[in-house]
Amino acid sequence: PQLADQKTLARQIYEAYLKNFSMNKAKARTILTGKTSNPPFVIHDMETLQLAEQTLVAKMVGSAGALKDREAEVRIFHCCQCTSVETVTELTEFAKSVPGFSSLDLNDQVTLLKYGVYEALFAMLASSMNKDGLLVAYGSGFITREFLKSLRRPFSDMMEPKFQFAMKFNALELDDSDLALFVAAIICCGDRPGLVNVSHIEVMQESIVHILQLHLLANHPDDAFLFPKLLQKLADLRQLVTEHAQLVQEIKKTEDTSLHPLLQEIYRDMY
C-alpha cells in the first residue's frame, strides 16, 4: 500500500506539472530538434531582434509603448522579466497542486515560493536551451547564445551562467516526469530562511525526495548515481540564483530600468 501511495503522489505531481507549465521538455526538444513543421524564428542580431519584436513578442515589448525607443538590452531585459513573471505564476499554481502544500501555513507557502521559484525557473529553463541558444516566446523564437553574449555589460553577463548550468544539467537526460518531482523537491525545502513550521515542511520534503529517488531508479536503471548527482544540482542552483540576484541588484542600481513588482517582492531581502 505504501508503494501505491508513492506512485499516486508521483503521478499527481507529474499531472500538475503538465497541466500548469506552458512549456515542457518534450515540447521544447521537439522544436529544438527540428521535428516541427514551424521552425522557430532565429534572433541572432539587432535586425532579427527588431523583426521578432514586431511579430512574436509585440505584446510584451508594447510596440506603441514606453519601451519602443529604448536600447535593445533594456527591451530584452524587460522580456526576460515578463517571462519570469509568467513562470512564477505557473509555479505558484503548480505548488498549490502538490499534495499538502496548500495546507501549510500561508506565510510559509510565501517563503517557499520566494526562495524556490528562481531555482525552479533555472532548472526548467535548461529544457529550452541547447549549446547554441534558447527558445523564447512559447517556442516561436530562438535567441542565440552568441547574440546574448554580444550585448553590452552588465546585460551580457545575464544568460551565460544559465547556459553553462543547462549544458551540464541536460547531460543528465532527465525527462518531464523526473523534472516534475525535482521541481516539487526544490519548492518543498525545509531550510529556507524564516520558515515558521519547519517540521511540517520537512515531512513533505522527505516524502517527495524519497519518491524522486525511487522514480529515478525505475526511470533510469542504467544511471545508479543520478539521484546524488541531482542533489548536487540543488546546491548549484542555489549558487546560480544568488549570483543572478546580485546581478539584478546591480542592474537596478546602475541602469535606468524598472523591475516588475512581483520580482521586486521576491528579490527584496532574499540573500
Binding site: V85, T89, K96, Q109, V110, E265, I266
Partner: peptide, 20 residues
C-alpha cells in the same frame, strides 16, 4: 505580509491575473 502581497494574492486566488 505587506512585503509579499502579490505572492499572497497569487496563492489565495488562482484567477487573479498578474499585470505584466
Amino acid at each position: 505580509k505587506e512585503k509579499h502581497k502579490i505572492l499572497h494574492r497569487l496563492l489565495q486566488n488562482s484567477t487573479s491575473p498578474v499585470e505584466l
